[in-house]
Amino acid sequence: MSFHWFRKAKDLVSPLPDLRAVPDQTHAGLTMDWLIAAMAENKEVPRVGDVIVEIQSCSMGMTVRRDIRHRVTGPARRMGCADCVPTVAEDGSKDTLSVFYMRRHKTLARTWTLMN
């Protein structure tokens, strides 16, 4: 029996997540879990107010070079072959992020990780 509906219902009533709920990943190592999770296409879409933790890896793909926090500011829309969401970063810069490589956080509601 699948409880996927329960997670969606819980997300609807959850308050806005904190941008810093996930510890800073800068200079942390990327494990096989990170690399495997970044391989397949994501079919879920974050909603307005969700937090996206963008992880940019070093040139070798072994450690995290930058950890950028974004908040989703508008609904997802189709751009090319993937859905994209408009976001604003902590520093105030605006961006549009593809949901293709995003994954839900395992324990935090309305928090996503994007491998870049």
Rank of each mutant, 00 (worst) to 15 (best):
V99E: 06
S98E: 06
V53D: 00
A76D: 07
R78M: 10
A82N: 15
Y101H: 15
D33N: 09
R65L: 02
W34Y: 15
L108I: 06
A37G: 06
T107L: 15
S98P: 08
R77F: 06
W34L: 02
S14C: 09
P23N: 13
P15H: 15
D11I: 04
D24M: 10
D50I: 02
V48G: 00
E41T: 08
G49N: 05
L97G: 01
G61P: 11
K106Y: 12
A38P: 00
H70E: 04
R77I: 01
L30G: 10
A40L: 14
D33K: 13
P75G: 02
N42H: 00
S57L: 07
L35I: 13
M39S: 04
K10R: 07
I55Q: 15
V53T: 07
R65G: 06
A109R: 09
P86V: 04
A109C: 05
N42Y: 00
C81E: 12
A109E: 13
A89I: 05
V53F: 01
A21I: 11
R77L: 00
F3C: 13
L19W: 05
D33I: 08
E44Y: 11
Y101Q: 13
L35R: 15
R66L: 03
P75W: 01
L16Q: 15
V64T: 06
A38T: 06
